[in-house]
């Protein structure tokens, strides 16, 4: 009270300046809360960081699998053995028809006489084969399919199995199907685990902040008695949640860098086995930034949740 009573109270502080000051003050309060309970705060950050590293690491593996599969040029192949009654021009016509099918990348007709000649030259069994009364080989069409969905491929092949010219089909898809099933599974695992652990992050951060609120209860009550708004009380805890989230995101990135740094050698060897150049393994800048943004948001949300649930019961009583 410096001099005059309330009648001459000064004009209200300008809104923008007050807003800026309040945010600055909220950061200081936030830092105060953090320091007051630094060990728990750091532990929280570590726990959330580990929880985030798990789905992020799975994502890296998923992403690596998908891009490796793409680079492997794994076009599915099928071989059609034609019936003995089918003449060469009919076989060639079948191959031409198949080339026009959008699901087919390439179709080559292999004449049985040409196949036999090639086999004789390549196998060194010329004399044995000459002794045979007939050419034992059928006409063949080799197919390279486009990479569509498994269902598309299946419908194409079952149509061919029923075709009049075709005696038998041989279809080499099994390990593509496995790879695709594996990456689909990983993809689901990443999103499912990510959603679950995202919820976990909100709850862990929220709980840590709830504990913080309990510890600051006195301060909050006194501030409210002095005319603090809910927004004023809430703000430092939102910042604290965001700081938890951001710190955890950085921790997760660090964990991933260490982990995939250790895996780089073995993964490079594995890539070599498949004839692939060893690509960079890890979270790229885009997904890394997304992880930080997401963790920040989740932490903020945890803070918001904790304060919203507690603010109403924080109404002070003047003891």
């Amino acid at each position: 009270m410096d001099g005059t009573p309330a009648a001459t109270r000064s004009a209200r502080p300008s809104r923008l300046a007050a807003w800026a000051r309040q945010h600055g003050g909220a950061w200081r309060t936030c830092a105060h809360y953090f320091r007051r309970d630094a060990v728990n705060a750091l532990l929280t950050v570590l726990v959330i960081g580990i929880a985030l590293a798990l789905p992020a690491g799975l994502y890296v593996i998923y992403d690596g699998t998908v891009s490796a599969a793409a680079r492997l040029n794994l076009a599915p192949q099928a071989t059609l053995f034609l019936r003995g009654t089918v003449a060469a021009p009919e076989g060639a016509a079948l191959a031409a028809r198949l080339r026009a099918d959008p699901r087919v990348a390439e179709a080559v007709f292999v004449d049985r006489a040409a196949a036999l000649a090639e086999f004789k030259a390549g196998s060194g069994l010329g004399a044995v084969l000459d002794a045979l009364p007939d050419n034992p080989l059928p006409h063949v069409v080799t197919l390279t399919l486009r990479r569509g969905s498994p269902a598309e491929r299946e419908s194409l092949l079952s149509g061919l199995r029923g075709a009049a010219e075709v005696a038998e089909t041989h279809y080499d898809l099994i390990w593509i199907a496995r790879l695709e099933a594996f990456s689909a599974l990983l993809g689901r695992g990443v999103s499912g685990l990510g959603a679950l652990l995202g919820l976990g992050v909100v709850l862990i951060a929220g709980n840590a902040i709830r504990v913080g609120i309990e510890r600051q209860r006195d301060e909050i009550e006194v501030a409210k008695l002095c005319g603090a708004t809910d927004a004023y009380v809430r703000r430092p805890f939102l910042y604290l949640g965001a700081a938890f989230g951001l710190g955890s995101g950085l921790t997760a990135l660090l964990i991933l860098a260490l982990l995939f740094g250790r895996l780089a050698g073995p993964l490079g060897d594995l890539a070599g086995l498949y004839g692939l150049a060893p690509g960079a393994i890890g979270l790229g800048p885009g997904p890394g930034a997304a992880l930080l943004g997401l963790s920040l948001t989740l932490g903020w949300l945890g803070g918001w949740l904790a304060v919203s649930l507690h603010l109403r019961e924080m109404e002070p009583s003047a003891r």
Partner: peptide, 15 residues
Amino acid sequence: LPLVVAGHPAAETAR
């Protein structure tokens, strides 16, 4: 505290 929660400028608050 009452001035801080009301967002008064630092100089005025100190005074």
